[in-house]
């Protein structure tokens, strides 16, 4: 059987073409334009070398902070979602009543539009009229009632918290599937040997979950570095760029006509992601059946 005749190359054409034109080409073009003074104010383009990149990394303006904010957002949410997700997954995988109810509810936020979640939380976190502060005042914890999205010190933490609220159930779901794939026999053997709950978790669940954990972390990192909707809806980068992440910054630069700056910080992320992405994709595609 001639494989190239039975499985013709043009079957892959549509997907590869559209993906290339609308995803890869803009990314590569972007790197090229990073070396120019492209803007909305002048029709001419000039080659200016690494000037845009120096501008980003010299720290003279806020550009570098948008990148570090994005990285911080990713690190904190990945750790929190993975930790909480693991805790809930262990609690909800076996021997608990109403487990399908809990699982269904916890997963629910991740199917809702991120933007809508953000909008709803602008009301809940409103300092004066928001549900959270009203509730805290009702139970006598007035001192905990903060200006969640307005106070520069805690605004970014609040944004991360909402994102953790949204994404933990999804991680939990993946980890539950991973836990349920561990053969019961291990736990039975451990019980006979007198292992307690912590030991069973530490020496069976955790090592057997390594691949699933790696995948969830990769998926979360990809999600975190590309975050936009959540920040845009909650704070739009404010107060004073404190919560500005890469994609909200690019959106503002675009509307100001600062194309070269926008494409430069996008390209920094693009190059970074392609390099680490190669290893991430290796993790995602690991253990795939190969005949």
């Amino acid at each position: 059987m001639q494989k190239n005749k039975v499985y013709p190359w043009y079957f892959a054409l549509g997907s590869v073409l559209i993906y290339t034109v609308l995803s890869v080409v803009p990314g590569l073009l972007g790197i090229g334009y990073s070396f120019t003074d492209w803007s909305a104010y002048s029709p001419d383009l000039h080659f200016i070398g690494f000037k845009n990149f120096f501008a980003v990394f010299s720290g003279e303006n806020d550009y570098l902070r948008y990148i570090t904010n994005t990285v911080w957002f990713t690190i904190v949410t990945v750790i929190a979602k993975t930790g909480l997700g693991l805790l809930f997954a262990v609690a909800l995988s076996r021997n608990i009543k109403w487990k399908n109810f809990h699982r269904g509810i916890l997963y629910l936020p991740s199917v809702l539009p991120i933007l809508v979640t953000g909008l709803v939380f602008t009301s809940i976190l409103n300092p004066k009229t928001g549900f959270l502060n009203e509730f805290l005042r009702t139970i006598g914890l007035d001192f905990l009632a903060k200006k969640w999205l307005v106070d520069p010190k805690i605004a970014f933490g609040s944004v991360m918290a909402v994102d953790i609220w949204r994404g933990t159930g999804y991680i939990m779901t993946l980890l539950i599937a991973g836990i349920l794939a561990i053969p019961d026999i291990y736990y039975e053997a451990a019980a006979i040997d007198g292992a307690n709950a912590w030991q069973r978790f530490r020496y069976i669940t955790l090592p057997m979950l390594r691949q699933t954990l790696a995948v969830t972390i990769v998926l979360n990192v990809i999600y975190g570095l590309k975050i936009f909707d959540m920040v845009y809806a909650l704070t739009n980068g404010g107060p004073g760029h404190r919560t500005e992440v890469l994609y909200t910054a690019v959106y503002k630069m675009m509307s100001k006509g600062l194309y070269a700056e926008g494409t430069t910080i996008s390209s920094v992320l693009f190059i970074f992601m392609v390099i680490i992405g190669y290893f991430m994709v290796k993790i995602l595609t690991k253990d795939e059946v190969v005949e």
């Binding site: 990314g27 570095l225 926008g262 992601m273």
Partner: peptide, 8 residues
């Protein structure tokens, strides 16, 4: 994995 460059 790769991010979209919205400018280009």
């Amino acid at each position: 994995v790769i991010p979209v460059n919205y400018v280009t």
